[in-house]
């Protein structure tokens, strides 16, 4: 059972890395500010799932707390940028 789970996670890992690189291309060359924030958002929520899968692969349960922190704080970046854009529209 342990061999099966390890082989499955090793097979899944390159697809995750490929999609992270594609997300990062959009985040680095996004033409406007909302595009960049959207790409960072999607990339970080997927990174949280990736960290949980890696915690199973490394067999160390203490690594699980980082995924919760990452998923919570990247939401605040959304709200900051949204408030900045709306405040610019309303004239401070």
């Amino acid at each position: 059972m342990k061999e099966l789970i390890s082989m499955f996670i090793i097979a899944v890992l390159p697809i995750y890395i490929t999609s992270f690189i594609l997300y990062m291309v959009r985040a680095l060359r996004g033409p406007t500010v909302p595009d960049t924030v959207l790409a960072i958002d999607a990339m970080t929520f997927d990174l949280a799932a990736f960290l949980v899968i890696l915690a199973i692969f490394f067999e160390s349960p203490i690594l699980i707390a980082t995924a919760i922190v990452l998923a919570l704080w990247i939401y605040s970046l959304d709200i900051y940028v949204a408030k900045y854009l709306e405040a610019k529209e309303m004239g401070e």
Binding site: P34, L38, D41, K83
Partner: peptide
């Protein structure tokens, strides 16, 4: 988050 961003954009 996506909704707040789309509304602001």
């Amino acid at each position: 988050g996506s909704h707040a961003l789309a509304r602001a954009a």
